[in-house]
């Protein structure tokens, strides 16, 4: 019988992490920003059919980078989790925190137990209502690491550069047009590209809407907002 060769757990984790990071860094980036009326999610995504940003529940949105089939799976599980919870308790009891924890558990288990880790990072955002409840953003990495982000978050290939750019330029209480222009500037500056509204998938969690706060911005609206004077 051939002896199974020994790999130290430390080496194994390192290899898996490197594999996952490589997969994620190949993908395009996503920027999310808090603005005066809610949370803005901007993904570089030329497809109008395969979404990277989507609705989970009344106040909760999902964004994923990396391998499409993997984060799509997580997205659907998130919708199921939230709909079942909202149906059996009440709509107000569905929170981003519980969902982010579930994602963290799932990704953590996959990372340690499966041969191939998921090559994804996901973001769960929840907009606070007008009565002073804060907005929340949770960023979950391929190994289940969970971080809660304030004001802005970035994921994908150039996430470090994006975060640095946003740190220097972000300010509170921006209008939607200002926030969108900042997000596009950040994506352009870090990749030496000039993105147009056709290259972007943009959605907002708009706290001024009743009940379902998620709203996609179609290209016509984007073009207007991107050229709006500040």
């Amino acid at each position: 019988m051939p002896l199974p060769y020994y790999v130290s757990p430390e080496q194994m984790m390192k290899d898996k992490a490197e594999y996952a990071r490589k997969g994620i860094s190949r993908g395009r980036s996503i920027v999310t920003l808090e603005f005066a009326e809610g949370i803005l999610l901007v993904a570089e995504n030329p497809s109008t059919l395969l979404h990277k940003v989507s609705e989970i529940y009344d106040r909760i949105a999902f964004a994923g980078v990396g391998k499409y089939n993997e984060f799509e799976n997580l997205r659907i599980l998130g919708i199921r989790h939230s709909d079942v919870k909202g149906y059996s308790y009440s709509r107000g009891d569905v929170t981003a925190k519980a969902l982010a924890n579930a994602y963290s558990q799932a990704l953590g288990n996959i990372f340690t137990q499966d041969i191939k880790p998921f090559e994804v990072e996901v973001l769960v955002a929840e907009v606070g209502d007008g009565n002073g409840a804060k907005s929340e953003m949770y960023h979950i990495l391929y190994d289940g690491t969970i971080e809660d982000e304030k004001n802005y978050a970035a994921m994908g290939g150039q996430s470090d550069e994006l975060r640095r750019f946003l740190k220097d330029h972000y300010r509170e209480g921006m209008t939607l047009a200002e926030a969108l222009q900042l997000a596009v500037r950040a994506l352009n500056a870090t990749q030496n590209k000039t993105l147009t509204e056709r290259d972007l998938e943009v959605a907002v969690l708009d706290r001024t809407k009743t009940r379902r706060k998620f709203r996609r911005l179609p290209p016509e609206v984007l073009a207007q907002l991107m050229t709006a004077p500040q």
């Binding site: 059919l49 979404h51 989507s54 609705e55 659907i76 709909d83 379902r212």
Partner: peptide
């Protein structure tokens, strides 16, 4: 009515 409403919303979110 509540189940039906959730059913429609669930479909809409999953299928887009």
């Amino acid at each position: 009515a509540k189940l039906f409403q959730t059913e429609l919303e669930h479909y809409e979110k999953v299928e887009g």
